[in-house]
Simulated scan of single mutants.
Amino acid sequence: MDLIAFSKALEIGLNLPKIPLEVQEVALQEAHGRILAVDLHAKDPLPKATNSAMDGFGLRLEDLGQTLPIAKTLYAGSPLDTLPPKACAKIMTGALVPDEVDVIVPWEKMQSYNETHATAPLGFKKGANIRYEGENIKVGDLLLSKGTRLKTGHMALLASQGLATLSVFKKLKVGVFSSGDEVVPLGSVAKPHQIYDTNGVVLVAMLQNLGFEATHLGHLPDNLQEQSARLKEALAYDVLISSAGVSVGDKDHFKEALAHLGAKIHYHGVHVKPGKPILCASVGTTRIFGMPGNPLSCVLTFLALVRPVLCKQAGSHTQEPPIKARLKSPLNLKGQRTYLILGQLENGVFTPYKDNAYGAGAIDALSGANAMACLQGGEQEVLVWLLP
Rank of each mutant, 00 (worst) to 15 (best):
229 A>I: 01
21 L>A: 10
265 I>H: 09
255 K>F: 09
173 K>E: 01
229 A>S: 11
156 A>L: 11
301 T>V: 12
284 G>D: 05
171 K>P: 02
266 H>C: 02
283 V>N: 08
187 G>R: 10
34 R>L: 10
359 G>K: 07
231 L>D: 06
194 Q>F: 12
202 V>W: 15
68 L>I: 07
7 S>C: 00
275 G>M: 04
31 A>T: 10
269 G>Y: 14
44 D>P: 00
31 A>D: 05
257 A>T: 08
347 N>Y: 10
361 G>W: 09
131 R>V: 02
250 D>N: 11
106 P>C: 07
120 A>I: 05
364 D>M: 07
83 L>P: 04
198 T>C: 05
375 L>W: 05
132 Y>W: 15
119 T>V: 05
178 S>I: 00
176 V>I: 10
382 V>K: 03
167 S>N: 14
186 L>P: 02
22 E>D: 13
307 R>P: 01
220 L>D: 02
343 G>I: 06
191 K>Q: 14
214 A>K: 09
41 H>L: 03
148 T>M: 02
50 T>D: 07
297 S>K: 05
77 G>P: 11
259 A>M: 09
314 A>N: 11
182 E>I: 04
205 A>G: 02
387 L>P: 11
160 S>T: 13
325 A>Q: 08
118 A>E: 05
317 H>I: 11
378 G>F: 13
348 G>V: 06
163 L>C: 04
148 T>L: 02
27 A>F: 15
331 L>E: 09
134 G>S: 08
337 R>G: 01
59 L>K: 12
141 D>G: 06
365 A>Q: 07
233 E>C: 03
200 G>P: 01
157 L>E: 01
7 S>M: 00
189 V>M: 07
280 C>H: 14
345 L>K: 09
99 D>L: 08
191 K>I: 00
194 Q>Y: 14
331 L>N: 09
13 G>C: 07
244 A>F: 13
11 E>G: 07
45 P>Y: 12
175 G>F: 11
127 G>T: 08
74 L>R: 06
219 H>F: 15
362 A>V: 03
342 L>A: 03
200 G>R: 03
187 G>T: 06
32 H>M: 07
370 N>P: 11
32 H>Q: 11
303 L>D: 09
170 K>L: 01
234 A>M: 07
238 D>S: 08
165 T>S: 10
144 L>D: 00
149 R>L: 00
297 S>P: 07
61 L>F: 14
186 L>V: 02
367 S>N: 08
152 T>V: 08
314 A>W: 15
17 P>Q: 07
129 N>T: 03
49 A>D: 09
52 S>F: 14
226 E>T: 13
314 A>L: 08
65 G>E: 01
367 S>E: 05
43 K>W: 08
134 G>V: 06
341 I>G: 04
182 E>W: 14
85 P>F: 13
47 P>I: 04
49 A>T: 10
347 N>L: 03
166 L>P: 12
368 G>F: 13
345 L>Y: 15
134 G>F: 13
166 L>N: 10
202 V>K: 12
157 L>Q: 12
234 A>T: 05
247 S>C: 02
258 L>C: 10
56 G>T: 06
259 A>G: 03
307 R>G: 01
217 L>A: 10
305 L>S: 10
236 A>F: 14
326 R>T: 13
4 I>R: 11
380 Q>P: 00
182 E>D: 05
